[in-house]
Design a binder for these strands. Structure first.
Lengths: 250, 250
DNA sequence: CATCAGCAATAACCTATATCAATATTTTAT
DNA sequence: ATAAAATATTGATATAGGTTATTGCTGATG
């Protein structure tokens, strides 16, 4: 992560860094975002940031740590819908809807900034490029949901696990988390199971298969990609849905 | 469907009707939309409107007929991602991305309007309420994707089928398709299978179970809901994700 | 530093759904 | 109207992944 320091305070964070990659932001835009996110709060692991049924509140931005979107079924089963990594935020303008159709929960300890709707509206009025960056981010999140539907619907369990790991690795690396073939991945097998529509027991078996296949291994909260080729091949992974090439960068 | 006639030409269509329900539109806004969609084209069934990998083009609006978003896996398997009904359109501003991460295909014959990006941009500049309506529509589509992920990931096959039928019935009724407990549903068991992550054979068996349970039946392209109570109960259906109550209508 | 709660790992067993196959029916094309 | 193609239906069989249960690890807590 690039940290620019002016005077005492760093004027950037993972959120700003992410948006800059999606659309070029002026110094003024960066300053506005920095000001809006300059008082983030620490949140413990496993805390709901917002619950299904809640009225949408301020825009939540995860500056550090991991969180997830999720839904609970009538029978108590859980489905994780997306992972939020540093820099990710909840939907722009959910406040147009009356209530949340899903919850958002921290996985690890998180540093979370809350931007009041009014503040966001003002910022977007003054800086249309921020609007554009946020909009692109939302389109990418939609593409990711489509990839998840496809994975859960049509891939075998080993393909599914491999596919998710490819996704998380690419996303993490693009924000400077972890390096070369390695990544701190604070996701328990239970959390993975709830993301992939499987049981924890079976996730465990599949991880063993992937280890034996020489593709990857997860130990002590760390993902190690042993062979990218093998992993990508098992997953049938095509990164197009992450839209790392954008229209303005052809 | 409400058809208002001024002079000779109807100035509304399913697209406009849908947006009006999401945000109040001025006469000027309606007129602008009507003008932009006044030259729709007939498209045969099973035609790609846009393919994965294509550069996003004009905004596509389905004025009549059914279509679907879909993805094809390396092994040839297909996953349907969403059904488009009359009034639905493809994502606002996908053109910010370099290429489509999925395709859109007609299921039945369709009447499709294409609005050039430049036209849309002009309209949105002049009529912010249209922007708002389209944005809400997109948020609802996202909620629907989350519901699909949850269904495929965590519901049993019979629950999944029942859940999708509840969704389609509500959506269809809200645009004036079909009536009281009945709906023309031009979806083959193969198409349903590809939407629900199942095999056609198993869809067939599940439909039989639902018939026997007295919940619903599909015959000759028509869905008949025999007992809404039973169907909803089997599905564990909660319509909140369709966001029929909006923030401005509390 | 002992206890406890949550995870991970593995085994044995079971079931929901896939697969394969054959036939009937409906829709479309000629 | 007839042939051809696409769907729907049903049965028999296979299997991927679920369920239940046990054990050991690890890190948190008093």
């Amino acid at each position: 992560m690039l940290l620019m320091v002016v005077g005492e305070a760093p004027v950037t964070n993972q959120f700003i860094e992410k948006l800059i990659k999606l659309a070029p932001l002026s110094d003024g835009a960066v300053a506005a975002l920095a000001a809006a996110t300059d008082d983030p709060q620490n949140v413990d692991a496993r805390r709901d940031l917002i619950r299904e049924g809640d009225k949408p509140g301020p825009l939540l931005v995860v500056l550090d740590g991991w969180a997830c979107r999720y839904k609970i079924l009538p029978n108590g089963a859980r489905q994780n819908l997306a992972f939020l990594m540093p820099g990710d935020c909840c939907d722009l303008h959910v406040d147009l809807l009356a209530e949340m159709d899903h919850g958002i929960q921290t996985i690890t300890k998180c540093l979370v900034a809350k931007i009041e709707r009014q503040t966001i509206d003002t910022i977007l009025d003054h800086h249309p490029t921020i609007m554009k960056a946020l909009y692109i981010s939302q389109l990418i999140d939609e593409g990711t949901m489509r990839a998840w539907i496809t994975s859960i619907g049509r891939r075998s369990s080993i393909e599914r696990v491999a596919h998710l790991m490819c996704e998380l690795y690419l996303r993490a690396r693009s924000i400077g988390l972890g390096g070369d073939q390695k990544l701190v991945l604070p996701l328990s097998q239970i959390i993975l199971a709830d993301a992939l529509g499987m049981t924890p027991v079976h996730i465990n078996r599949v991880l063993k298969q992937l280890r034996i296949a020489g593709a990857m291994s997860i130990t002590r909260g760390s993902l190690v990609i042993i062979s990218p080729q093998i992993l990508v091949q098992i997953a049938g992974f095509d990164e197009n849905y992450l839209h790392r090439r954008l229209q303005n960068a052809p």
